[in-house]
Design a protein around this nucleic acid. Structure first.
Lengths: 142, 142
DNA sequence: TTGTTCTTGCAACTGAGTTGCATTTGATGT
DNA sequence: ACATCAAATGCAACTCAGTTGCAAGAACAA
């Protein structure tokens, strides 16, 4: 299992033609294990003591976004949340729901929002959908 | 026309039950005339010499967002863009397109993206759709 | 007009993200 | 295995959009 994750991560880097370095592997591993979008700080926390410098994390993430293996999912409190794009297809990218009451943000994987079609000469490469409102817990207690 | 805008703005504040102050009126007027999302700085520029303090603008915008007469449209270069919500209905909120080549962001008013239905107990109050790719100009010259 | 409450302005602050540069490291060819 | 070079990393200092606390001013109701 651990070896499987490692192999998966190495494969991601290889197919994106990016150098396989420890910081990059660690960052991708953290994102892979998380199953939810993470901030740069959360990534560092999950890697632990030998986490890369924050500049390194930002630059690695930037590289990953350019290579389209990571997406900038959403902004909350002025900070970006990153996630692996391996769950997104050309057809769909799952939306994120932010609760206006408790502030939690959830991935709504089960909610299918079709990719918007090309319109008037625009070539759409990525679609980001953010939903705001009340989560099940808060809507009940309201 | 000028009087019409002024009246419209006063009406917006009144129906939102907010105090009618000069800074608030000026900010709403700037947004109303703009027909596109603006940053706090752009709002100040458009108001000109007697623009309110930046803290005042931020706080007014925050109040407007809470009253749902203004939307936070999207983030670009770490700064929020605000727009009047009077073009958005319960059915639809127009998406914004950001060109990965030239950086321009356009409102795609003509593109109808239906509001996502309530799903699994989530109460959706606002839907923000951001599209990324190539604008007509950049896709031609590529 | 008066009193209360909300709003504004100023100054100082916060912190996510960036930049420049010296050092290290992965990939490639020999 | 080793040399080479471009690319990646770490550190320190920086940027700047947005925030906070507080005193002074303005809108609204009585």
């Amino acid at each position: 299992m651990k070896g499987e994750t490692k192999h998966k991560v190495q494969q991601m880097l290889k197919s994106a033609r990016l150098r396989r370095t420890k910081p990059r592997s660690d960052i991708l591993t953290a994102l892979l294990k998380a199953h939810q979008p993470l901030t740069r700080e959360q990534i560092a926390e999950r890697i632990g003591a030998c986490a890369p410098n924050k500049v390194t994390i930002y630059r690695a993430l930037e590289t990953f976004v350019a290579a389209d293996i990571v997406h900038k999912a959403f902004v909350q409190n002025r900070t970006w949340y990153f996630e692996l794009s391996h769950h997104c297809t050309a057809d769909q990218c799952h939306p994120h729901f932010c609760c206006r009451c408790c502030g939690r943000t959830d991935c709504l994987h089960e909610l299918h929002i079709p990719m918007t079609a090309d319109s008037g000469g625009y070539i759409i490469q990525h679609q980001r959908v953010q939903l705001e409102g009340l989560c099940p817990k808060c809507s009940k207690s309201a």
